[in-house]
Simulated scan of single mutants.
Amino acid sequence: MGFLLRWLGAFLLLAATFNPTEYNYVQWVRSYGHMNLSIAVLIGLILLVGYIIYLRASLRSIGILGMMLVAALVAALIWVAADLGLINLDNPSFNLWLGLVVLSLVLAIGLSWSIVRRTLSGQADVDDVDT
């Protein structure tokens, strides 16, 4: 259940920032941000904090190479699904949603990896040492 919540949080963060509908931060700032500059900056900073949390945890737990490997594995799964005719990649809107799912999976796996590793190996990750 924990992984699903982390994935949902990552997906909502990415989808709130940009998605193929008109209901996203980027579109709102383009259309109305100049009229509500203080709100646009506040929401942008809240989104930035979310990205920093997810990216920092992902980079510390699996690194950039691990993030690229997870993205490559998910891309290969999508390629297989497309080759087997399970999904159709002709719709740009669907492709964008699929990209959001892939990116959110990468972030969620990065955020969850330390927990998975500790569960499987019994070893805790200790990065910060208080002196």
Score class of each variant (00 low, 15 high):
40 A>G: 03
114 S>C: 04
54 Y>L: 10
2 G>N: 10
11 F>K: 00
130 D>L: 15
39 I>S: 10
82 A>C: 04
98 L>W: 07
48 L>R: 05
69 L>A: 15
62 I>V: 14
55 L>R: 06
35 M>G: 01
42 L>E: 05
34 H>A: 14
93 S>L: 06
114 S>R: 12
128 D>H: 12
22 E>Q: 14
20 P>F: 14
23 Y>Q: 12
27 Q>K: 14
44 G>S: 02
28 W>P: 01
2 G>W: 07
65 L>I: 15
125 D>S: 08
117 R>T: 08
49 V>G: 07
56 R>S: 09
55 L>D: 04
30 R>Q: 13
15 A>D: 04
51 Y>N: 06
69 L>F: 15
17 T>N: 12
77 L>M: 15
31 S>Q: 14
26 V>P: 01
32 Y>I: 01
114 S>H: 13
19 N>S: 04
35 M>S: 09
45 L>H: 04
57 A>V: 03
31 S>T: 13
76 A>G: 13
34 H>I: 10
39 I>R: 08
102 V>N: 03
91 N>S: 11
108 A>D: 02
59 L>C: 01
33 G>H: 03
84 L>M: 15
78 I>V: 14
99 G>K: 02
101 V>Q: 12
72 A>M: 13
125 D>A: 11
64 I>Q: 11
115 I>N: 10
62 I>A: 09
130 D>M: 12
111 L>V: 12
39 I>Q: 12
44 G>C: 06
34 H>D: 09
77 L>N: 07
24 N>E: 00
122 G>T: 02
64 I>T: 11
39 I>L: 15
14 L>K: 01
52 I>G: 05
115 I>K: 07
98 L>D: 09
27 Q>S: 14
12 L>D: 02
81 A>M: 12
17 T>V: 13
33 G>E: 05
63 G>P: 03
51 Y>Q: 03
97 W>F: 15
124 A>F: 00
128 D>N: 08
8 L>N: 13
55 L>A: 11
76 A>Q: 10
112 S>Y: 12
40 A>E: 02
7 W>H: 10
20 P>C: 03
95 N>L: 10
2 G>Y: 06
18 F>M: 11
36 N>G: 03
54 Y>F: 08
83 D>K: 13
88 N>T: 07
9 G>P: 00
12 L>Q: 09
93 S>H: 15
10 A>Y: 01
99 G>P: 02
84 L>P: 02
116 V>I: 11
85 G>I: 04
3 F>D: 04
118 R>N: 09
105 L>S: 06
98 L>K: 12
14 L>A: 00
